[in-house]
Design a protein around this nucleic acid. Structure first.
Length: 935
RNA sequence: GGGGCCGUAGCCCAACGGCAGAGGCACGCGGUUUAGGUCCGCGCCAGUGCGGGUUCGAAUCCCGCCGGCCCUACCA
């Protein structure tokens, strides 16, 4: 490719070129940094600045989901949201707000560790290098961040507070009666009121207390990923049983791990969604993930064994429960299996085995051997086997057989169901296979010819419930169950507690030690931060990806001198063993935005006054939280759920005044890219591909195939912001990205189209600057009436668009104004100045430069955004199209303030020929729009 | 299987239920230029995926289908 010549002779000396842009951009970026232009004043503390023009003004906290600083650096897709928030933040500053906007780094995580393993470089070195690279790239884009507030989750001074918050969670319990977390000390007081408490040993007491904590250690089936050498949260496992990161197989293993009691917050996490200004799809995803269902727990007695408790959302169908199913893995199965098949056991129930025990064992082995994918593939055909046991339906005393089947999941509800084939499609299918009785307990609607009926209808075959609708029937049967002691109304959740420990080096160490009794003990706050130890080998131990029998081994466990430690935790110096797991990458992102508010505070993670100002509730019932949070949908249930949970714990404990972290959420789209493959399937560098004609692409004369998707090194289609800044300047890049479409829409990158934005800025430049002399080309003569009206319409439109994040249409309006200005010849100052100000949020460097050329000192950052004069928004004359039966048959021009009757008369006169003397049936005058006549 | 989002010029996208076009790219013509490129000006292109309905009037609201994308998946 031929590079641009320095300054070809025929280009005017003062044209806005890439070189000009780069010089201007460097200058203003230095200026902003030296002046601290984007430093937002806090109410209190070191970042307070009462003299600041926006000190104490209404606030706006604008936030980006902070990036993981990968070694690959940014491509043009990454900054889309960052530029969007910057434009919005700059606009809000000019609109009078005190705007907090900064950028941090989610810098713990796997890639730095994996890179470290390959190269032997410490993850901290890699991480810091990558962060520096990111900072440089972001600076180049001219983002107006308050750099004093930038944090990285790997900073010791940051993760000190992550550990502190962990201690808050650890040192609290959920009081279901009050519906909130309370300090663990208050639980201890409650427990100590019982005289039996004092009789227990300290270890016993601690064990009991530990069971109530919001952060707790439990031995439970977890997602073990040998390929990554770590366990994973449910949210990090895909539906086909693989790790979201790396796509390795994941196995269920019972392991001792740290958990967070997020399930205690299930109701609030669902209910408080109503207070948030979030996209509905994201709310729906969270609701689905939490999966609240209401119904009842019902106990079915079993001869000679404990009753089987089931959860059902349809207790009203209890009379139709003709059999039961227990998950194959359920522990009560062994206790109910008799030595022999009961008399007259149906042949198909036994699976061909001689004894129930053999049948159960065989079915369990079969189920265990299936992978997730196989299970899903087999889901159409119901399988199972009779356990040999019968239970009793509490409502009518019917004996119902108990099966095991893999369509019932151990992890949901109680792991057992009452099967009601008449009202449940799955149960119907199973009943057909095993020839079980089917009783309808809801009258299907007229003409229903399906199998299970799940719709609304009156209860039938249901004794005391007959005739009732579903809702009343539920209410009545629950009351009966509770009165008779057979069950009670209940709510269950799909949401599981959050698996919080990882077997990694590059994460926050837990501020936890274990005493001789093996119980977890929190370090006191005074011992924070607990820093990661230096180790020779920080690599996690990984295994063959499908080695299900392997066990995790934490890198920190190899740092023997660090693990074994002598401390005085109140009982004199004793030897303790440190926790060697680390926290998951989500920990830092659960609260980072709070640290932005008060990044230098050494006494608290955030001062209450600063928290209240920036994110406190703005009115009664308001959740508080960040005013605008921009990021991708991929965090819908991971980050956003975890962060809400932590925030609510902090709220309950009185550390924050807001009960939600992010009040308004906006999902930006993605910039995608075309990639090209040759006939052998190898990727071709995208920039070398020519478009012969629409949909026909060639490379070196050879035809290649186009595909659409992500931008990535392996696809050979990466375009970087660095290249774009070099070729056109950052302002052009910003204008292009913002003009491609609405922020929430994904779109393809098209390098050749960037020139449109470049030309636009050149034209703006030319309206103000004489390209030959470099002097100001603006005149003080008043603008024409048309131009002035266009300006005010533009101002009104741009203001609206900016506030609504519709930057694409704002830019279109600015281009329109610029084109009109170009056509007008000389540029009146009264147009030039507002144009420059309106451009400033989007293309800040060129705007600053033009603003100073227009004779103003300093930055325009806090200059008022133009306001439209309402008097100039309406034209004197309005042209109305006149429709007859939906077709335009003429036009009339009337005064803008003409009476409706006059418009009507004029319109009828205009289309008199079309009407041919007939009386119109109806005449509709839409003010300022059109006249519609029905003939 | 369930839930959600989206289909407007060759492409990216606009359009309070009111004349389908704001803007950009590409393309064509003209000007500037030794030429190419740059820059400037002018122009070209769709009746809104398909079929119904509501309405004086539908890209917009409702119903059904087609196509694409996302989430979820035996959740009792």
């Amino acid at each position: 490719m031929s590079e641009h010549a320095e300054t070809p002779a025929d280009i005017p000396p003062y044209r806005y070129t890439a070189a000009t842009a780069n010089a201007i951009e460097a200058h203003w970026q230095d200026f902003w940094q030296e002046q601290g232009t984007f430093h937002a004043p806090n109410p209190v503390g070191p970042l307070a600045d009462p003299a600041h023009p926006r000190s104490g003004a209404p606030k706006q906290f604008v936030l980006d989901m902070f990036p993981y600083p990968s070694g690959a650096g940014l491509h043009v897709g990454h900054p889309l949201g960052f530029i969007g928030t910057d434009v919005f933040a700059r606009f809000q500053r000019m609109a009078g707000f005190n705007v907090l906007h900064t950028m941090g780094f989610d810098s713990f995580g796997l890639p730095a560790e994996q890179y470290a393993v390959q190269t032997g470089t410490h993850p901290r070195i890699t991480t810091e290098r990558n962060v520096e690279r990111y900072r440089a790239q972001l600076r180049m884009l001219g983002l107006g961040h308050d750099d004093r507030r930038s944090v990285a989750t790997t900073d010791v001074e940051f993760y000190r507070w992550t550990q502190w918050i962990f201690l808050q969670v650890f040192n609290s319990w959920y009081d279901a009666e009050q519906g909130k977390a309370r300090p663990i000390s208050e639980l201890v007081e409650k427990l100590a009121a019982d005289p039996a408490w004092a009789a227990k040993s300290a270890t016993e007491q601690r064990a009991i207390i530990n069971e109530h904590r919001l952060a707790y250690v439990s031995e439970a089936p977890v997602n073990w990923c040998p390929g990554l050498g770590t366990v994973l949260a449910n949210e990090e496992v895909t539906s086909d049983g693989r790790s979201e990161r790396g796509n390795f197989p994941v196995f269920k293993r019972s392991l001792k791990q740290w958990m967070m009691r997020i399930t205690a917050y299930g109701d609030r996490l669902i209910d408080d969604l109503d207070t948030l200004d979030w996209p509905e799809p994201i709310k729906a995803m969270q609701r689905n993930w939490i999966g609240r269902s209401t119904g009842a727990h019902i106990a079915f007695p079993v001869d000679g064994a404990d009753p089987i408790r089931v959860f059902t959302t349809r207790p009203d169908t209890l009379y139709g429960a003709t059999y039961m199913v227990v998950a194959p893995e359920h522990e009560l199965v062994d206790g109910i299996v008799p030595a022999a098949w009961p008399e007259g056991t149906h042949e198909v129930w036994t699976g061909g085995h001689d004894t129930p025990a053999a049948a159960v064992a065989a079915y369990r082995a079969e189920a265990a051997a299936k992978t997730e994918v196989e299970r899903q593939a087999d889901a159409k055909v119901k399988t199972g086997v009779f356990t040999g046991a019968y239970a009793t339906n509490p409502v009518n005393g019917a004996r119902v057989p108990v099966f095991i089947a893999d369509y019932v999941l151990a992890g949901y509800g109680t792991g057992a169901i009452m099967a009601v084939p008449g009202q449940d499609e799955r149960d119907w299918e199973f009943a057909e296979v095993f020839e079980l009785p089917i009783i309808r307990t809801v009258q299907p609607t007229e003409g229903f010819d399906g199998k299970a009926f799940t719709g609304e209808g009156p209860a039938i075959n249901s004794g005391m419930l007959d005739g009732l609708g579903i809702a009343e029937a539920k209410e009545k049967i629950i009351a009966w169950l509770e009165a008779e002691g057979h069950g009670q109304g209940a709510v269950t959740y799909r949401l599981r507690d959050w698996l919080f420990s990882r077997q990694r080096y590059w994460g926050e160490p837990f501020p936890i030690v274990y005493g001789a009794d093996g119980q977890a003990i929190a370090l006191p706050e005074s011992m924070l931060p607990l820093e990661l130890p230096e180790v020779d080998d920080f690599s996690p131990k990984t295994f063959e990806p499908d080695d299900a029998t392997s066990s995790p081994e934490t890198p920190l466990s190899r740092a023997k001198e660090w693990v074994e430690v002598e401390l005085d935790l109140g009982n004199g110096p004793q030897t303790y063993i440190r926790e060697t797991n680390t926290m998951p990458q989500w920990a830092g992102s659960c609260w980072y935005q709070l640290r932005y508010l008060d990044p230098t505070n050494e006494q608290a993670f955030v001062d209450p006054a600063n928290e209240a100002y920036w994110v406190g509730p703005q009115s009664a019932g308001d959740s508080g939280g960040v005013d605008l949070y921009v990021g991708g949908v991929e965090h819908a249930v991971l980050h956003l759920l975890y962060a809400r949970f932590w925030h609510k714990v902090l709220f309950d404990l009185g550390h924050v005044s807001s009960f939600e972290p992010y009040h308004r959420l906006f999902n930006q789209g993605y910039i995608q890219a075309y990639a090209y493959k040759d006939d052998r399937g190898a990727y071709i560098p995208a920039e070398e591909v020519a478009e012969e004609q629409p949909t026909v692409f060639t490379w070196n004369g050879e035809k290649v195939n186009r595909e659409y998707g992500k931008m990535g090194k392996s696809l050979k289609n990466v375009v970087t912001p660095d290249e774009m800044c070099e070729r056109y300047g950052a302002d052009t890049f910003r204008v292009y990205e913002m003009s491609m479409g609405p922020l929430e829409v994904s779109r393809p990158w098209e390098t050749r189209a960037v020139v449109g934005a470049y030309r636009f800025l050149q034209r703006v430049w030319r309206t103000v600057v004489d390209e030959q002399t470099g002097g100001v080309a603006v005149v003080d003569a008043p603008a024409s009436d048309d131009l002035r009206r266009l300006l005010h319409r533009t101002v009104a439109g741009v203001r609206e668009d900016m506030a609504a994040l519709r930057f694409n249409t704002a830019i279109a309006k600015l281009i329109e104004l610029t084109n009109a200005l170009t056509k007008a010849g000389a540029t009146p100052r009264e147009i030039a100045e507002p144009l420059v100000l309106m451009l400033a949020p989007i293309a800040p460097h060129i705007a600053e430069e033009l603003w100073s050329k227009l004779g103003h000192d300093g930055s325009l950052t806090f200059v008022d955004f133009p306001v439209a004069d309402p008097a100039l928004l309406t034209a004197d004359l309005v042209t109305y199209p006149v429709q007859v039966n939906g077709k335009v048959r003429g036009r009339i021009e009337v005064a803008a303030d003409a009476a409706e009757a006059d418009i009507r008369t004029a319109a009828l006169a205009e289309v008199a020929a079309t009407l041919a003397g007939k009386d119109p049936k109806k005449v509709i005058v839409v003010p300022n729009r059109l006249v519609s006549i029905v003939a």
